[in-house]
Simulated scan of single mutants.
Amino acid sequence: MNSLRRRSALEAWLGGGLLAAVTLAAALLDPTRPGRFPTCPFRGLTGFDCPGCGTLRALYELTHGHLVAAVDYNAFLVAFLPFAVVVWLRAITGRSGPRVLPVWCARAVLAVVVGWAVMRNLPVFGGALAA
């Protein structure tokens, strides 16, 4: 394994460890109870949900086996997690290799995130996508 792949695998393990720590904290501390975690600064300033609003509560529900409740809090996170797991597994096994994503890919991801942020704040959905 060359040094670039080793570094990529190390970064993947560190990222996975960070996500595991956040998930464990969310599972044990129940973010659905007020005062456990700080509120979203974007929501506090604007009154709108950001793309990440509801993520901790969705993680809490996922760790307790409540998929529908997790989707209720943040459907984007629930849809994104399987893709993240595949990318993570490829990185730790060295299968991903050092690649730079094309510019269009970064633009597509940004468009999806912005689209999600806008959609979840539209009144046409009646708050169904809100956190």
Rank of each mutant, 00 (worst) to 15 (best):
W116L: 10
E11W: 04
G35K: 03
P102D: 14
R99N: 04
T23G: 09
R107D: 10
H64L: 07
P51N: 06
L81A: 11
A26S: 14
W104T: 12
P123F: 01
T55A: 13
A9I: 04
T63K: 00
A128P: 01
V78Q: 01
A91V: 03
L4H: 12
A20W: 08
E11Q: 05
V118T: 12
A25M: 10
G15W: 13
M119H: 00
R6C: 05
Y60F: 13
S8N: 15
L59V: 01
L110I: 11
A9V: 11
V22I: 15
V100A: 14
L81T: 14
F48D: 09
A108L: 15
F80I: 12
V85E: 02
T23I: 06
L28D: 00
G126T: 05
R95L: 15
A128V: 09
R90Q: 14
A128L: 13
A26C: 14
A117I: 06
C53L: 02
T55D: 00
R36W: 03
R33E: 12
Y73A: 05
G35Q: 08
V78W: 05
F48C: 12
T32V: 12
S8I: 11
P123C: 00
A106T: 08
P34R: 06
A106S: 06
V118F: 07
S96A: 14
F125W: 14
A84N: 02
G65M: 04
A108D: 10
L29A: 11
R5M: 11
R7V: 12
L67H: 02
A69P: 01
L89M: 10
V68N: 08
A75T: 06
L67T: 09
T23K: 02
L67F: 13
L56S: 01
A131I: 01
R43A: 15
P82R: 13
L29P: 03
A27P: 05
A111S: 13
R33C: 02
L24H: 04
N2L: 07
L10N: 09
L18G: 15
S8Q: 15
Y73H: 14
V103P: 00
T39H: 10
F125L: 13
D30R: 13
L101G: 00
A117C: 15
S96N: 11
P41I: 13
D30K: 11
R43G: 15
E61R: 04
P51R: 06
A128K: 04
E61F: 06
N74L: 07
F76G: 00
A9E: 05
T23L: 08
H66P: 02
E11I: 04
L62Q: 10
A128D: 02
